[in-house]
């Protein structure tokens, strides 16, 4: 149900784009209005979500410490996994964000009769890393459509991405990687019972949507060739806020663009916001220095306590009998 509804939603989006742009020729809507709208929703939504998180304070210093603390000078602290300085935190965050450090720790537990075996499990880490890095390279590559002249850096990246020199047009490795990685991430949700058990439509849908984006892009580049000059002119028009259509572009382009637009518009309201959230996670972005420097809770308030005087009042006789010193001899 969760899988089928997600698949159906993505197919519906493809169908809408095909009918709308390919049959009804609503290219202004699908080529100009929708992308702008999606971008506005994405930017505003992303900002709103981050502001909303930011408005909730961090009352306590709660880093998850994953290594030796800084204590005695002759004990070597783990300055990254248990940071006490801002630099340590920055390194920790860089490792988390670029290499998925925590996910790299992943293990798998197996039960053999009366014993547990904890073994290494790196596939999830590898699949996720492959997807995210491919995605990043592909996004940067796409900037060639929005820049004139195309910066050398982007050209260099394209060169590296296609250095295998397979086929014409040249095959980008990241195109293959992203489809493989997304397929893996999707299939593990379907095939591993406990992962399927925890999966929601909100997990399948973005994976299928991303797969749709990748596949439509690949079809466009390698199979149903579209007028690249026309695409570039539209893209340049969009970024200079003077959008024009100079040529007829095939419907596959509108399918691709519509799916991308939907991804952008969907992003801020979904779990995809982990992209922003990871930067704000208090178990990772705080230094474990709360014994060295006082962490202030902005809403700290006075509480009722049971004072020593009240305690002594209740136990005075008993305390006196055993010779404990007293404040009030009463």
């Amino acid at each position: 149900m969760k899988i089928w509804s997600s698949l159906l939603a993505v197919i519906a989006l493809v169908f809408i784009a095909w009918v709308g742009a390919g049959v009804l020729h609503l290219s202004t809507f699908f080529g100009i209005v929708l992308p702008y709208l999606a971008l506005i929703i994405f930017l505003a939504g992303f900002l709103l979500r981050v502001i909303k998180w930011g408005k909730s304070p961090v009352p306590f210093c709660i880093p998850t410490t994953c290594g030796q603390q800084e204590s005695l000078p002759w004990i070597k602290p783990n300055k990254i996994e248990n940071p006490t300085t801002t630099w340590g935190v920055i390194w920790r965050m860089i490792l988390e964000i670029t290499l998925f450090r925590s996910l790299f720790r992943n293990t798998a537990t197996e039960k053999h009769d009366g014993n547990l075996a904890i073994g290494s499990a790196k596939w999830l880490w590898f699949g996720s890393l492959l997807f995210h890095w491919s995605m990043l390279v592909i996004i940067i590559r796409h900037l060639r459509f929005f820049t004139e002249p195309v910066p050398v850096l982007i050209q260099g990246l394209e060169f590296m991405d296609s250095f295998l020199q397979i086929g014409i047009p040249l095959l980008y490795m990241t195109d293959v990687f992203i489809v493989l990685a997304l397929s893996y991430l999707f299939l593990r949700r379907v095939a591993i019972p406990k992962v399927k058990y925890i999966s929601q439509a909100a997990d399948y849908f973005p994976l299928l949507l991303l797969l749709g984006v990748a596949i439509s892009g690949i079809l466009m580049r390698y199979f149903f060739r579209v007028d690249v000059v026309g695409v570039k002119e539209l893209a340049m028009g969009l970024v200079t806020f003077r959008p024009v259509f100079s040529a007829e572009i095939g419907p596959i382009f509108y399918i691709h663009l519509t799916l991308v637009s939907c991804l952008f518009a969907y992003f801020p309201w979904s779990k995809l916001m982990h992209a922003g959230g990871i930067f704000m996670s208090p178990t990772r972005n705080l230094a474990n220095n709360s014994r060295m420097v006082r962490h202030v809770n902005p809403w700290n308030y006075a509480v009722k306590t049971h004072t020593y005087d009240e305690y002594e009042e209740e136990f005075r006789d008993k305390m006196k009998k055993v010779g404990l010193p007293l404040e009030g001899e009463g």
Binding site: V58, Q200, D203, K271, H274, P282, T283
Partner: peptide, 13 residues
């Protein structure tokens, strides 16, 4: 608690 709001939002399961 930022932790609470964030952890309600960002889990990707």
């Amino acid at each position: 608690y930022r932790s609470f709001r964030l952890f309600m939002d960002v889990c990707v399961r």
